[in-house]
């Protein structure tokens, strides 16, 4: 595992919505293709803003971002998407007025060929969606919408998937199911960068974790380090003093 080059590299990165009002400050971040990296942190810390910046959806940015070794600073969202990045926003992440199939067609808008085949493959990953591809997205449950949002982002065979709080709207039972689905997608060779509020559950599945506070990177470490770190536990995982997280609970299978 030496000499790997990262899928994504973000250097001295700052940005925001209005020039002059910086939301994220000087963030450094690497994501390798065989990793799940989870960003946690309090509400308003700038986690969503960072993901938007990475996919080129922010009005202004300073600093550099590299994707697969190429300098992609300033690239627009469609260009990032075309080069192999999938992005699932935190909210409004499906076309509600369109059917499941149409949502997937839009996800595959840039495909030159094999649209039908890819829709078939992606639907096969999500049995709930496969049963009724003509259903309007507005009629789906929260969990199904989240599945559709991910399915849409997979249509172009991305090598990296940016997921903004995929389990936020879900019941606890559905969260585990979705996270394991994300893990399965990861195992097909997709680097995963995700933001999560349900930090404990997400970190269990993650190779690395990163804590963001007030637009800055406050801490970074392996998933285990995060889960067992007393500061992280107290501040973000809802643990009481002295109540550590044991590795058995935290192991994957």
């Amino acid at each position: 595992m030496t000499n790997r080059s990262p899928l994504l590299r973000v250097e001295q990165f700052s940005g925001g919505y209005v020039e002059g009002i910086e939301i994220i400050h000087d963030v450094e971040l690497d994501l390798f293709g065989d990793e799940i990296l989870t960003i946690i942190g309090p509400n308003g810390a700038g986690k969503s803003t960072l993901l938007k910046a990475i996919v080129g959806a922010l009005p202004f940015e300073h600093g550099r971002r590299y994707f697969q070794g190429e300098d992609v600073s300033g690239w627009s969202t469609p260009r990032m998407i075309a080069s192999g990045v999938g992005y699932v926003p935190q909210v409004d992440n499906v076309f509600t007025s369109m059917s499941i199939r149409e949502n997937l067609e839009m996800g595959g808008y840039m495909r030159r060929d094999g649209l039908r085949e890819r829709i078939g493959e992606v639907l096969a990953m999500f049995p709930d969606l496969e049963q009724r591809p003509g259903e309007r997205a507005s009629r789906l449950s929260g969990g199904q919408r989240q599945m559709l949002a991910m399915a849409r982002a997979l249509m172009l065979d991305p090598v990296m998937l940016c997921l903004d709080e995929p389990t936020a709207a879900l019941a606890p039972a559905a969260r585990g199911e979705l996270l394991s689905r994300i893990y399965q997608i990861h195992m097909t060779g997709v680097g995963i960068l995700m933001v999560e509020q349900n930090a404990t559950e997400a970190l269990v599945w993650s190779d690395r974790g990163l804590v963001m506070v007030d637009g800055e990177k406050a801490m970074e470490g392996s998933g285990r380090e995060m889960l067992t770190s007393p500061e992280v536990g107290r501040a973000f995982l809802g643990q009481e003093e002295g109540e550590g997280f044991t590795l058995e609970e935290g192991s994957r299978q």
């Binding site: 469609p78 992005y87 926003p89 076309f95 007025s97 808008y109």
Partner: peptide, 23 residues
């Protein structure tokens, strides 16, 4: 049509249309 569906997608959610690679 592909273009027409993209028109509906843009009407529905322009940000997500961009995130789907639609110009």
């Amino acid at each position: 049509t592909r273009f027409g569906k993209a028109m509906r997608a843009t009407a529905d959610n322009p940000g997500l249309a961009e995130a789907s690679g639609i110009d």
